[in-house]
């Protein structure tokens, strides 16, 4: 009698295996640290994308604010660029704070791209968010060029390029070339689109949907994307039109 339950179960399981139209789930297991466990799921990866995206959003906004010094003239802009290298002194060594920021940004970019790639791979219908994918790729390639142009100076046409002290001249030299200016404009349009969907997705992925937030999520995403994209695009236009020289 003790094996009766087992015998009954076998009779029935034989039916189950033979039958169509009833998919079965794997048993759930928990393993690894809390964060690793969260990250293993697609929802967790969306979280990682949202948090890294948020870091990058804060950065692009500060980056824009700093660059507005372009309109205050060469002296102001160059002084600001030089300050970036000494900020945090004397607690930190020269360039320390700057590098700390850079490390955070590098980590955020890696997490953002890795999570995006893994999510795309996980999706059975190999589709992902098409807009986000191509806008993300354009922005990613642009960042590489942008660093080579204005951060490291490898591609910058300014013969006097020097880290920090010649920022104004570097920008003007670069944007004077209509091809480069056009590239910046196109890339920032892609960035705007990316930020619009990203900023809105941020609320969704982080689960910020309470009634106080809900009504202005969409508006915030639009405003954020427009401010950043328009601000950034204004620089090459200003240089090309001679408003900044």
């Amino acid at each position: 009698m003790a094996d009766d339950g087992a015998r009954m179960a076998t009779t029935h399981q034989r039916h189950t295996r033979a039958r169509l139209g009833a998919q079965t789930a794997q048993p759930l297991r928990r393993r690894g640290s809390l964060l690793a466990e969260l990250y293993r799921s697609a929802v967790g990866k969306k979280y990682a994308m949202a948090i890294s995206g948020l870091v990058l959003m804060v950065y692009v906004l500060l980056h824009l604010a700093g660059n507005l010094k372009l309109y205050a003239g060469a002296e102001s802009m160059n002084a600001y660029a030089a300050w970036l290298r000494v900020m945090g002194e004397p607690v930190l060594p020269e360039g320390g704070a700057l590098w700390a920021v850079r490390v955070i940004l590098i980590v955020a970019v890696i997490v953002h791209i890795a999570a995006a790639a893994q999510l795309t791979a996980m999706n059975r219908a190999d589709f992902a968010s098409r807009t986000m994918r191509w806008s993300g790729v354009i922005v990613g390639l642009f960042i590489v060029y942008h660093l080579a142009d204005l951060t490291f100076g490898w591609l910058n046409p300014n013969p006097d390029f020097a880290h920090g002290s010649t920022a104004y001249g570097n920008v003007v030299a670069s944007f004077s070339n209509p091809v480069v200016a056009g590239l910046y404009i196109v890339a920032n349009l892609a960035l705007g689109l990316h930020l619009y969907h990203g900023a809105w997705s941020l609320f969704q992925s982080m689960g910020w949907s309470n009634p106080a937030v809900k009504p202005w999520r969409r508006g915030f995403a639009i405003a954020f994307a427009v401010v950043v994209a328009a601000g950034n695009i204004s620089f090459p236009i200003a240089v090309l039109t001679g408003a900044v020289a």
């Binding site: 048993p27 759930l28 297991r29 928990r30 393993r31 809390l34 964060l35 466990e37 969260l38 799921s41 929802v43 967790g44 969306k46 979280y47 609320f203 969704q204 992925s205 982080m206 689960g207 910020w208 949907s209 809900k214």
Partner: peptide, 26 residues
């Protein structure tokens, strides 16, 4: 509404980070 998805995402992170999620912990 997809607002419910946002709520699910939030609850999921909360569940995972509090390590209370799931009766199947091994």
């Amino acid at each position: 509404s997809i607002d419910l998805i946002a709520m699910m995402n939030r609850d999921y992170a909360r569940a995972k980070l509090r390590r209370r999620g799931g009766g199947a912990m091994t």
